[in-house]
Amino acid sequence: MTDFFVSSSLIAIWSAMSVYTLAFIMFTLDLAKRSASAQALPTSAADARSAAASVSGTSRAAASRAEGGDTIVLDKPPVVAKPVYRYKFERIAFALTVVAWVVHVAGVVLRGLAQGHVPWSNMFEFSLTATAIIVGVFIGVQFWQNLKFLGAYITGFSLIALGVGTVNFYTDVRPLPPALQSAWLVIHVFVAVLGTSFFALGAGLSITQLLQARRASSKAAGLKFLQTLPGADALENLAYRVIVVGFVFWTFTLIAGAVWAERAWGRYWGWDTKEVWTFIIWTIFAGYLHARATRGWRGGRSAWLAIVGFGAVLFNFTIVNLFFKGLHAYSGL
């Protein structure tokens, strides 16, 4: 039975990767298509939108009196006529992402069934589950805001992580070592990945924000598809709102980790390499929040902090796990 779960899990993961690849291609085509459409436009949508943003502060919802009655018309703030794009590729790409994600989650669940415990007890399984949660958050976030333009970034990132995880970190099914036999394994790691997902989205938005700011400052150059995306300020606000959620999760995971460390290792904090890096990441994002309130640090600089912070998260998962000596020695390699 275990063998069946293991092999079907792997089949599911490889299938998901194939579909993610298609989704990635479609998202890339979508960006290319956006570039093409943007070129065709006399005034760019982004400029129009940022203009709309600056106007909307003083925009008045004009109310006009309708004929012969007391009816008042309360207009919404004026909406700048959006250029009509055919987001065909984006829709296909997103649909493919959802399909791939369902298969991906099935693969994760099957791996968990094969193991008989949560599928994130070594680096291979962590890659599977973390990417599933990252893509899941990306899909879920669309209900709140349309961030599909990050699709190429998210599917590309997940593809690389899944590929490296499956090819380089693969480990056989093994029993859970005594140190990991704790409910905190479920809570601490899961929330850490949730935090990571939001940081990943935040970094993607911040990268786009930097590109957008560069495009705005040097009118000529720049990637054309950016004209179809929100302006730098809007992207900065979105990044902030996403990162704030990630920061709360990260704070929680830090505390949960300390509680677990107290039970398992007899001290809640011991400057183990992984603890050090979790602390560094927390401090960088605390810096990010303060940067938002510091004159001269809004905009590009805080965006860089968000990107560096997410870089540190990746560093913590890869380099620290593989090359640094510490108590979190659960890579399974």
Binding site: T283, I284, A286, A293, T294, W297, L305
Partner: peptide, 16 residues
């Protein structure tokens, strides 16, 4: 705030 931010980032670097 500027100093606080500077010290925060310095703390992150010093922990490395």
């Amino acid at each position: 705030m500027r100093t606080a931010l500077f010290l925060l980032l310095l703390l992150a670097i010093a922990a490395v």
